[in-house]
Computed example of a mutant assay.
Amino acid sequence: MMNILVVGGTRFFGIPMVEKLIADGHDVTIATRGKSQNSFGESTKQLVMERTNYDSVKEALAGKSYDVIIDKIAYSSNDVKNLLENVSCKKYIQMSSCSVYLEDKENIREEDFDSRKYPLAWIDRIKDYAEGKRQAERAVYEYIDESNCIFVRYPVVMGPNDYTNRLRFYADHIKEKKPMYVDDLDCGMEFIHEKEAGLFIAHLVDQDVHGAVNGCAKGMISSRDIIEYIEKITGKKAVLDANGDEAPYNGTTSNLSYDTTKARQTGFRFSDSNEWIFDLIKSYL
């Protein structure tokens, strides 16, 4: 059993992650702003803090120590500073993102972005999500030895509890015949299901691995695949218009996929996205 602090974790893929940690017998403490319901009840302890406020974090965590910290809401270098200057741990796992990679291409490997070599800037949260995540990774090395930290890099996470509604955008627009702008119908992308996203992080708490780790389901899916499936189910044609609402997955410049060799070497197995993505789309319809 390990003493684990989860920063965030009360919604989306944080839920299957915490459920797995509890099932594995760990002593779990969740730190949140206290605005999301803690559905785990007495199975976890809970601390209330405002992550972006140094004094709030210090009041909640100063002097505390954990075997593992799972940080799901690090969006800037100052987020990391606020946390790691006020609490200690033997292992730190940060929920990072595949958006840290500087080039869209197939089979992206972890070493394609080495945050150890990235110039550090102490910044608060900014509109540039990708840069914020790069700085969040880089800041960790100011506090934690390389051998004791893990950066989990996921592409877009999908599932029935996805509050971003990116996939639902396509279903709703086609059902309602609302114009949408898709910049590249045939550019393939890889995704990950919310349950696997949570389970993989929980899996990593007792694995001998460090540094960046990619995680995603197998198989690229294009906007055309999504649209044609919805058209088939609904019997309605998508209204594609350059002046329509901007589609969520626009901006990718090439087929986009990730090498998950490092993750799979820990014994974790990811699904094929074709096993669940079309059922997920159907649930929106």
Rank of each mutant, 00 (worst) to 15 (best):
D184L: 00
L185F: 01
L185R: 07
L185V: 10
D186N: 13
D186K: 12
D186Q: 05
D186Y: 11
C187Q: 12
C187W: 00
M189C: 11
M189E: 06
M189G: 06
E190C: 14
E190G: 06
E190A: 11
E190M: 14
E190P: 05
E190K: 08
F191R: 03
I192P: 07
I192N: 04
I192V: 15
I192D: 01
H193I: 09
H193M: 08
E194C: 09
E194L: 07
K195M: 06
K195E: 14
E196M: 09
E196P: 09
A197T: 01
G198L: 07
G198I: 00
G198D: 05
G198W: 07
L199T: 00
L199Y: 13
L199S: 00
L199M: 11
L199V: 03
I201D: 04
I201P: 02
A202G: 09
A202Q: 01
H203V: 09
H203T: 01
H203P: 06
L204R: 04
L204A: 01
L204I: 06
D206L: 01
D206W: 00
D206S: 14
Q207E: 08
Q207K: 15
Q207G: 04
D208L: 12
D208Y: 09
D208K: 15
D208A: 14
V209Y: 14
V209E: 00
V209G: 03
V209S: 05
V209F: 10
V209L: 10
V209I: 15
V209R: 02
H210Q: 14
H210M: 12
H210G: 07
G211I: 14
G211W: 08
G211Y: 02
G211V: 12
A212Y: 13
A212G: 15
V213L: 15
V213R: 12
V213M: 12
N214P: 07
N214E: 02
N214R: 10
N214A: 11
G215W: 12
G215I: 12
C216R: 13
C216N: 15
C216W: 09
C216V: 10
A217M: 11
A217R: 11
K218T: 14
K218S: 13
K218W: 14
K218Q: 13
K218G: 11
G219S: 08
G219C: 08
I221E: 03
I221P: 12
I221G: 06
S222N: 07
S222Q: 07
S222C: 04
S222I: 07
S223V: 11
R224Q: 04
D225E: 05
I226H: 08
I227G: 04
E228L: 13
E228W: 11
Y229F: 11
Y229V: 03
Y229E: 05
I230N: 04
I230T: 02
I230P: 04
I230K: 03
K232S: 14
K232D: 00
K232E: 15
I233E: 09
T234P: 01
G235N: 08
G235M: 04
K236M: 08
K237Y: 02
A238H: 03
V239E: 01
L240W: 05
L240V: 10
L240Q: 00
D241K: 09
D241T: 05
D241C: 03
D241V: 06
A242I: 06
A242Y: 10
A242N: 10
A242C: 07
A242K: 10
N243D: 12
N243S: 13
N243E: 14
N243I: 02
G244L: 05
G244Y: 02
D245L: 09
D245T: 06
D245G: 07
D245S: 12
D245A: 10
